[in-house]
Structures are given as structure tokens and as C-alpha cells.
Design a protein around this nucleic acid. Structure first.
Length: 504
RNA sequence: CGGGCUGUGGCUCAGCCUGGUAGAGCGCUUCGUUCGGGACGAAGAGGUCGUGGGUUCGAAUCCCGCCAGCCCGACCA
């Protein structure tokens, strides 16, 4: 029995269900017994580790250092910045007690009763601006203490009503950068620098082209002066916000009292920024690159870039084949790809070859190698690329393969980026009128990114959001968006197009 | 937080209307055949049917309470 595709349903049939099935088939994560929280399994976590390590290099290269702050935030801290507090109020988990009392029940069981109520409750961090701000206030006295360039890798919790693996979970992993600066100019440069880091990372490491831009007031981070975003398009033509960086002005410095004595001997408030990406990136990778046979992971971030599948048709040559595979793996591991040693795995499990092969296809390992007795004799390997069909197979002389392996991986990386770029470009349209706009986002139409002239208000945005379920994803940077025109809704003059889309 | 639905072996579900103490497919184990390959056959392991109470000779099945989860909205990295 052979299915046409490994994943049912296909993307075209039911994209959300396809996504769930792909995550499961790739063994990346599962829903846990804790509502809204997921178990990230080794294959999914391995991807996160690579994202984390590679991003961390970029953070260090731009002058940041890592630190760690408490999981629990005093409730009063959240009350310091009104907009911020309001923004997160509906999704906070609150810790109110600090001990349990074992209470024997008549039926012999034990119940644990929370006691020891806290005088001031703690909130499990939904983000750490407030508590890091309090630390910054202690650390900063003089302009000589600035800038502070801190990053934290941690978990946060937002009590989401409708969780989905990786895309929206109650607890998720992320990094949050927090910086404090002497001047607004410096803080804005920092915000833009990190925005660029995210853009580059998405493109060069995850093979996902993004549209960098600024959020409108309505979509802005609560308490921020400016929010920058990188917006990616995934295969159902919806937008997903992949990373944000915020220029916070002096709002949080005021709230947390981050003051310093300036060069002119006056007391001044610092200018702060924050920026982050989360495990949502994994969901973005899956939806951007996956096909009807499962996940496709870009080589640069794949937990294993190459899996070697020993072909062992006869018991008496089995060990010989496995030894040859191990030897090849060792040779490959001495090579570097994008600055890191190749990650090669030999799958020696005693399973049927076909089942094993399909397992790795569904997991999205970029390259599979098959080696059997005949290949040993002919000194060749069978090479299968995940960005090509499941049956596509090229027999390559072993030495030639070893010489060309990193180029081949780069080809896959490039092919994925090219494919994702083509998809995005094919679904980005410049539209002029409200009628065109409505047709573009009609229930039965494909949708995509609509580039529109816009001069409407936040209320206008609200209306469009309610009626058509579309939002302004960003006011994009870049010359191709700069042109004179008239707002499609209000008719007011506009000098730049904005990007509208449905979003995750 | 509003509206709808569902809780049965690891997973997906049937059985419930018309009460008689459990079934299928997938997965798992073993054996055999096959295999440059997501195969086939046979045997087998695994469930106090979410939970508490009620009706009944007898409850997965009927009634009431509770709990949990899912879907559709509002919210969101």
C-alpha cells in the first residue's frame, strides 16, 4: 500500500489540519496534559537549539551579553506602565500561594490545598520589560554605564485561549533582548540593528524571505513608541510575524525609573528597546517549507543535515555495510557547513528500509544517503534531496560526493529560499480600490499580501479587521513601496503602500 | 469570557437512540514469507468505557451533578 502523499490531508485540502499532522508525523512536539502547553520533542528541540545557537552568535557579534532574570514578576511592577499592563492583563498566570498542605480525605486519598497566601501576588512573566527595567534602574547611575545591552533566553507564559503547537502556546521559549541607551538616536539605531539581524537570520538561516517594516499604532507592542516587525508569508498565503523589535522611548524608563546623570550633569531618563523571537519560528519554518510529505528543514538549522540509511538486504553483509556507513559519516563530520561541523546521523535501527526512509522524509532531514553492498562495490552513494520528490535519487561516486557535499547542502538551502520567495512574490499584489481589495480577501479567493495606499485611522483598521479579518501587517521599508497615491479607503493622499494580510 | 460539541486500550474512532459488564483500524510484541524496502500472513499484549451519585435484577448505554478537552467567536509572539 502506498499513499500518494505521506501527510493526509494535503495542504490544499485543509492547511490547518495538514499543519497539525505534519508536526505529529515529524515527531517535533505534542500537546501535553497541561492545557495550552506543549512537549517539545528532541527533533523539534534540536531545531530550536540550532536557531538559538546561531542567533546567539549574531547577538554577541552586535555587542550583547546574556543574563537571566526571575520567572516571577511582582504584580505591582505590571501596574507601572498603564498601556503595557492593559496589553497583557487578559493573559497572565498569577501565583498567589507559596505552600501546600496535605489533607487526608475520608476515602484515603490525599488532597493538596494551597495555603500561605502571598501578600503580593506574582505574575508569571508574559515578557520581562518590567523586571529587567527594575534591574536596569539599579545598574545605571551615569551615562558611563550606558548602553546596557542584555539578552535573555527563557520561557514566558501567556494564557492563550486557543493554543496551537509552536504557533501559539501558553508557555513558549524565546529570547528577549533589553537595552538601555543615553539617547533616543542610539536606541533607534539599536532597534533597527536587531530588526536587521532578524531579517538576515530569517533569510540566510531559515530560508524565509520577510518583509521588514513598522507596525501601525493599532498593532504596536503595548507601551512602545515604535514596533518593527519582519513578516513572512506561509503557504496558505497568510502572514506570520516572525520577530519584533521595539523602540520603547522613555516610557519604560519612566515606569521603572531608569535614570542617569548625563554628560551635562543633569538627571535624564534612559531610552530603552526590547526585541524577541520565539519558538513560533519553528511553526513558521514548517508552514513556509513543508510539503505534502511532511516537514522540510533548511540545512543550516536542521538537527541532522544528513541521515545515512544502510541498505542491508542480506544478513552476512549487514555489518560490512554498517561499518562503511559509519566510516562515511565520520569523514563527513570533519567537514564544515556554514561555519559548523556537518551533523550526520547513521540510522542503524533494525527496521524495514522503506519505513525508515519515510520517517526521515516526514521529519524533513535535508539529505538522505543510501548505501548498500552494491554501492560499496561501485564506490558510490545514492543521494536523495528533501526538496525534491521522495523517489528522486542520484547515484554519485563517493569521493565526488564527499568533495561536493557542502555545495549540495547549500543548493538545498538556496532552493528553499528561492521557492519561498517565488511563492511570496506570486501572491503579493498592488491593488487600488476597495472593490479589488474585497475581492482579494473574499472567502473563496486565494488571498495573499495586498500592497495598498493607506491613510486611514486606527478605527478604519478596526473595521477592516472585523469585516474582512485582515490587518495591516506592516508599513514596509524599501523603495519599492514608496510612491505617491491615494488611500483606497479614505481617498487621502499617501506616499507609501502598506501590506495587508490575514495573519496567524 | 459568550455559543456548540465531545469524553471508550498508545492514537483515531464505532457501540449509546432500542440497557444484558467492549469492538475496529492504525501502532506495539513474537514467528514466518518478502524486501535497494513506507509489504504480507499468523499468533499475542493492552481498556475498572472522564468522574461522583441515582434508576434498575443488571448501566459504556437512561437521569442528575462535577471535571476535562475540542470547535466557532473576542484576544494574541
Amino acid at each position: 500500500m502506498s499513499n500518494a502523499t505521506a501527510i493526509t490531508p494535503t495542504r490544499a485540502q485543509d492547511f490547518p489540519e495538514w499543519y497539525q499532522q505534519v508536526v505529529r508525523a515529524a515527531d517535533m512536539a505534542e500537546n501535553s496534559e497541561v492545557r495550552g502547553c506543549m512537549v517539545i520533542k528532541p527533533w523539534g528541540y534540536g531545531l530550536w537549539e540550532n536557531i538559538q545557537r546561531q542567533l546567539d552568535v549574531k547577538f554577541k557579534a552586535t555587542g550583547h551579553v546574556n543574563a537571566y532574570f526571575p520567572l516571577l514578576i511582582p504584580l505591582s511592577y505590571l501596574e507601572k506602565e498603564a498601556q503595557h499592563a492593559e496589553g497583557f492583563a487578559t493573559e497572565c498566570a498569577v501565583v498567589t500561594h507559596h505552600r501546600l498542605e496535605a489533607q487526608k480525605q475520608p476515602d484515603g486519598t490525599t488532597k493538596m490545598i494551597p495555603t500561605g497566601e502571598l501578600a503580593e501576588p506574582f505574575v508569571i512573566r508574559p515578557t520581562s520589560e518590567t523586571i529587567i527595567g527594575a534591574a536596569f534602574a539599579r545598574w545605571v547611575e551615569s551615562y558611563r554605564d550606558l548602553p546596557l545591552l542584555i539578552n535573555q533566553w527563557c520561557n514566558v507564559m501567556r494564557w492563550e485561549m486557543r493554543p496551537r503547537l509552536f504557533l501559539r502556546t501558553a508557555e513558549f521559549l524565546w529570547q528577549e533582548g533589553h537595552t538601555a541607551h543615553e539617547t533616543a538616536e542610539e536606541a533607534i539605531v539599536e532597534t533597527r540593528t536587531m530588526h536587521k539581524v532578524y531579517e538576515d537570520f530569517m533569510r540566510d538561516h531559515l530560508a524565509i524571505p520577510v518583509i521588514p517594516g513598522e507596525k501601525t499604532e493599532r498593532e504596536r507592542f503595548p507601551g512602545a513608541v515604535q514596533t518593527f516587525t519582519v513578516e513572512a508569508m506561509v503557504q496558505d498565503k497568510k502572514a506570520i510575524q516572525a520577530g519584533t523589535s521595539h523602540y520603547l522611548g522613555q516610557n519604560f524608563a519612566k515606569a521603572a525609573n531608569i535614570q542617569f546623570l548625563g554628560r551635562d550633569n543633569t538627571r535624564q531618563l534612559a531610552h530603552t528597546t526590547s526585541w524577541g523571537v520565539s519558538t513560533r519560528m519553528i511553526g513558521t519554518v514548517i508552514m513556509a517549507h513543508g510539503d505534502d510529505d511532511g516537514v522540510i528543514i533548511p540545512p543550516r538549522v536542521a538537527p541532522n543535515q544528513i541521515v545515512i540509511l544502510p541498505v542491508t538486504p542480506k544478513a552476512d553483509t549487514r555489518q560490512e555495510v554498517i561499518d562503511a556507513c559509519e566510516a562515511l559519516a565520520q569523514t563527513l563530520r570533519t567537514q564544515m557547513f556554514a561555519g559548523e561541523p556537518l551533523r550526520v546521523h547513521v540510522d542503524k535501527r533494525d527496521l524495514q528500509g522503506g519505513a525508515k526512509n519515510w520517517e526521515w522524509i516526514k521529519k524533513g532531514v535535508p539529505m538522505r544517503l543510501e548505501m548498500g553492498p552494491r554501492d560499496i562495490t561501485s564506490r558510490s552513494v545514492a543521494v536523495c534531496r528533501r526538496d525534491q520528490g521522495p523517489k528522486a535519487k542520484e547515484f554519485v561516486p563517493k569521493e565526488e560526493f564527499i568533495q561536493s557535499v557542502t555545495e549540495r547542502l547549500q543548493e538545498i538551502q538556496d532552493a528553499l529560499l528561492a521557492r519561498a520567495t517565488a511563492l511570496r512574490d506570486a501572491n503579493m499584489k498592488k491593488l487600488e480600490t476597495l472593490e479589488e481589495f474585497k475581492a482579494f480577501f473574499a472567502e473563496d479567493s486565494e488571498g495573499g499580501f495586498a500592497m495598498m495606499h493607506w491613510a486611514g485611522s486606527s478605527d478604519d483598521e478596526d473595521t477592516l479587521s472585523k469585516d474582512l479579518k485582515v490587518t495591516i501587517r506592516c508599513i514596509p521599508h524599501g523603495d519599492q513601496f514608496a510612491e505617491e497615491g491615494k488611500c483606497f479607503l479614505t481617498g487621502k493622499p499617501s506616499s507609501r503602500r502598506v501590506v495587508f494580510a490575514r495573519s496567524y
